[in-house]
Design a protein around this nucleic acid. Structure first.
Length: 815
RNA sequence: GCCGGGAUGGCGGAAUCGGCAGACGCGCGGGUCUCAAAAACCCGUGAGCGAGAGCUCGUGAGGGUUCGAUCCCCUCUCCCGGCACCA
């Protein structure tokens, strides 16, 4: 019995029945003895309907969840929304729609689309970070960090638009100007909240080693971001004022090559020193210019720019006095904000020295050169060599000498070994409305006071003005911020900043384990049951920040005794991005492709197969290169049609299956199982296509294919869940869902080949092929090769000098 | 500049351990069916030479190791991603 494949009839039907049957509920029943599998997908941001990137990511994540379920696991596959953020507020400003309304409308649309895609989510655990029942606990977690000194306030610059009178995100600064009004963006210092992630820098670095199933590239990015460097801290003394200025260097072996000293423009000592040196008139404009530069632009300073301070720094290793400068190429946030400059061996220092006509002193002599003329140098030297002009260390090979110099500095009391991290503390304050309010009250008498736990959540008010101007929306609200101090009862004000949305997304995977729990963010026993997550799937764009913040939160919770492990996601899979014509899809480029039209025209299964078959899951997909011409039938859809006819024909046939098809079936089960374990969906699908083609051939020749059909439908289930269910229940007549069925097992004996094709080469070139028994001996293989016609033709008149025999695959006769 | 990843037919890709390069699909060409078209189905499809058997070339370029290299090593070119004056 053949059945025409019609997705529009099949898919809505099963979508309803799966919901009715409660198929995808994870079981918390302690009597459930199945092993557990937590299939975690990065939750989406509700900025509109689902896009092609979601289609790719969730097709893969859902395949994993369904596969593991068929493998016998009790699968937790939850979904939620990362629902606070800038976009909702921008929409509010533009259209006057309240952020909540815009956000919840988008969530509902995305939820409906996910449902239409047939995602196997356990909807009962749905999480939305903008719900008070969620952000109550975001605030609660903030307070736990605050109690431990891991949340603190300090001054930090923000991007400030002088025309709109508002704070801008880096993203809103386009070429130094405000994206809304075009005014040049300035910097403004505000007191803001930070999480002390730097306290965890070493552990975050060390524990990368525990992430055994992360892609290498992501582990490397994490390590580089943390950026540990070892070196020395050395203190220089300002000759004129006696002030002591520490610097960090990774190259203490170049200390004797210091010819000048540079402060970052924002360094607190700059004004004092310039005034003392009588150069403040020249330095002030540079400081003012830096202050007026946006954060983004500030990072790209010219190496040649800088002004002398008119004072000198004394080098503690040799007592030499060198001139001091202020220059924007020295960064405030890294090291101590001041550097010892070694132009001979650092390129940036070299460029600055040339621009300001400063001496260059070579202290690492390359071993192959007799003498280097500093005047003739065109760039800094970064080679290994021997220390020269370095007092007690002349003749020491560098960089091996770094440890010796450091030890000497410590022994002499002129410096000490030091470790510096590139990682900075996490700035979490946002001067915005649509986020979780920071649960702190500022009291003139008591200072920063935590909102008591039983008063959480600090709710967002609804009657708020979103138009930009002066202060953040919460600060402008007439009454919201006015409270009495929880400590002394006096008049006090709420903190009017909200938290970075990365805070919300740093713990949502814990909440999935204890949905609706009211006595804490989660229940320890639920976490012990499901975490660490078995598999985390999501985009590589989150390879650094999101993952680092989740790791930090988990370690902090571990230290509080709230969880029993230090890494939340030991296994990570990053899918590639979906791009168009070599460029990422975006509204401004007008190249956005949405999955819904494809789903409506051809079905969700076809959409999934297109995405998963396009290439390796971790590679980018360029939609322009794989899209099917308008109106034409996608290949994936045609294949599903062939699967329907083949399975239908096989189901109606009582004929015995040929041995060849049984063998291919078992080889396919083995191959697809292996592919699913490694997220190689593209090769899994190709193997299923091969099996379909072979079934067709066998059926057309009058043979049976019932066993192959059963296996094909089971193997197809995680990849095209609707089609597989229709075939399983309606065509093959099974009662229970294919998605609750057991993954097929293969019989190695049945999968084994009796004969293989043996290649006969002469001098490494294929000259003949013969079918041989797979158990053929080396002697028999060689005899066959020598008897081969193809080989003999080439060998005529030549002597075989060597025989390479790799029975049963290959014989190579070398002349 | 640094770090990471790549480069295979007209296109997406496959080759899991150094052993038949191009699986599977798309596209294209031819055919069956049809009044015709679409759909479906069948055959063909790396390049060159050849009537054919077959031969030669071929995995970014050049070199090396090896009986044998898409795979290992060296040099180079180009592309993509990430981070960038990180001392």
């Amino acid at each position: 019995m053949s059945r025409r494949y019609d997705a529009s009839e099949i898919e809505p039907k099963w979508q309803r029945r799966w919901a009715d049957e409660g198929l995808y509920r994870a079981s918390d029943d302690p009597r459930d003895e199945r092993p557990r599998f937590y299939a975690l997908d990065m939750f989406p941001y509700p900025s509109g309907d689902l896009h092609m990137g979601h289609a790719e990511a969730f097709s893969g994540g859902d395949a994993v969840a369904r596969y593991q379920s068929m493998r016998g696991y009790n699968v937790l596959h939850p979904i939620g929304w990362d629902a606070f953020g800038l976009n909702a507020e921008n929409a509010a400003i533009k259209r006057g729609t309240p952020p909540a309304e815009w956000t919840y409308a988008n969530i509902e649309q995305q939820a409906a689309s996910f449902d239409r895609f047939g995602m196997s989510f356990d909807w009962s655990r749905r999480v939305q970070t903008c719900d008070p029942t969620y952000y109550r606990w975001t605030q609660w977690l903030f307070l736990r960090l605050f109690e431990r000194g891991l949340a603190y306030r300090k001054n930090a610059p923000v991007n400030w638009c002088p025309s709109d009178q508002t704070v801008l995100a880096n993203e809103q600064v386009i070429a130094g100007a405000c994206e809304r009004c075009g005014a040049m963006v300035e910097r403004r210092a505000l007191t803001q909240w930070f999480f002390k992630i730097t306290d965890y820098a070493q552990r975050l670095l060390d524990d990368v080693d525990l992430l055994t199933d992360w892609p290498d590239r992501v582990m490397t990015m994490q390590r580089n971001w943390i950026g540990r460097s070892e070196g020395a801290e050395v203190t220089f003394t300002i000759e004129e004022t006696g002030e002591e200025i520490p610097v960090f260097t990774t190259r203490p072996d170049t200390l004797w090559g210091v010819t000048f000293f540079v402060f970052s423009v924002e360094h607190p000592a700059v004004r004092r020193l310039a005034e003392s040196g009588g150069t403040w008139d020249e330095v002030a404009p540079l400081v003012a210019k830096a202050a007026a530069t946006s954060l983004v632009e500030r990072e790209a300073a010219d190496t040649r720019e800088g002004v002398a301070l008119g004072v000198h720094a004394v080098n503690p290793v040799n007592g030499e006095r060198v001139p001091c400068f202020a220059a924007p190429y020295v960064l405030t946030g890294y090291g101590t904000g001041a550097i010892m400059a070694v132009p001979a061996h650092d390129q940036r220092d070299f460029e600055f020295a040339r621009a300001h006509d400063l001496p260059v002193c070579v202290v690492i002599q390359p071993e192959d050169a007799i003498e280097v003329d500093p005047e003739a140098m065109t760039e800094a030297m970064a080679h290994e060599g021997v220390m020269v002009n370095s007092g007690p260390f002349d003749g020491e090979p560098s960089p091996a000498s770094i440890a010796k110099v450091t030890a000497w500095l410590e022994a002499e009391g002129r410096g000490k070994a030091a470790v510096n991290f590139r990682l900075r503390d996490w700035l979490i304050s946002r001067q915005r409305y649509w986020g979780a309010p920071i649960p702190i009250v500022h009291c003139p008498a008591c200072g920063e006071v935590a909102v008591p736990d039983d008063q959480l959540p600090v709710l967002l008010p609804e009657d708020v003005d979103f138009q930009p101007g002066g202060e953040s929306p919460l600060a402008r609200h007439p009454s919201w911020k006015d409270v009495s101090c929880p400590n002394c009862g006096g008049d006090a004000v709420r903190d009017t900043d909200t938290m970075d949305t990365f805070v919300d997304s740093s713990w949502y995977f814990f909440r999935y384990c204890s949905p609706g729990y009211e006595d804490g963010p989660f229940r320890r026993e639920d976490i012990d049951r499901w975490m660490p997550a078995s598999q985390y799937t999501g985009g590589v764009e989150h390879a650094i920040l999101h993952l680092l913040y989740c790791r930090f939160f988990t370690k902090a919770l571990y230290d509080m005794g709230m969880v029993g492990f230090v890494e939340p996601f030991p296994k990570l899979m990053n899918q590639g991005q979906v791009i168009y014509g070599g460029a990422s899809m975006s509204k401004t480029k007008g190249n956005i492709v949405e999955p819904m039209p494809i789903v409506e025209r051809w079905g969700a299964d076809t959409m999934r197969l297109i995405m998963l078959f396009a290439g390796p899951f971790e590679d980018d997909i360029d939609w322009k290169l794989i899209e099917t011409e308008q109106g034409r039938r996608p290949g994936a859809h045609s294949w599903l049609g062939r699967v329907f006819t083949a399975v239908g024909d096989a189901a109606g046939s009582e004929t015995e299956e040929p041995e060849e098809l049984v063998r291919l079936t078992h080889r396919t089960i083995a191959g697809v199982t292996d592919d699913m374990e490694r997220f190689r969906f593209n090769t899994a699908i190709s193997k299923l296509m091969v099996l379909t083609n072979e079934m067709r051939t066998v059926l057309d020749a009058g043979g049976g294919a019932a066993g192959a059909a059963r296996a094909l439908v089971l193997l197809l289930a995680p990849l095209a869940p609707f089609a597989a269910e229709e075939l399983w229940r309606e065509v093959l007549g099974e009662r229970a869902s294919v998605h609750m069925s057991d993954w097929p097992t293969f019989d190695a004996a049945l999968a084994a080949e009796d004969t293989v094709t043996m290649v006969i080469q002469v001098d490494g070139k294929v000259r003949d092929k013969v079918e041989v028994p797979s158990g053929i001996s080396d002697e028999e293989a060689l005899a066959l090769a020598r008897a081969s016609e193809g080989a003999a033709r080439i060998l005529a008149g030549r002597q075989v000098a060597k025989e390479i025999v790799r029975a049963p695959r290959l014989v190579n006769l070398v002349t």
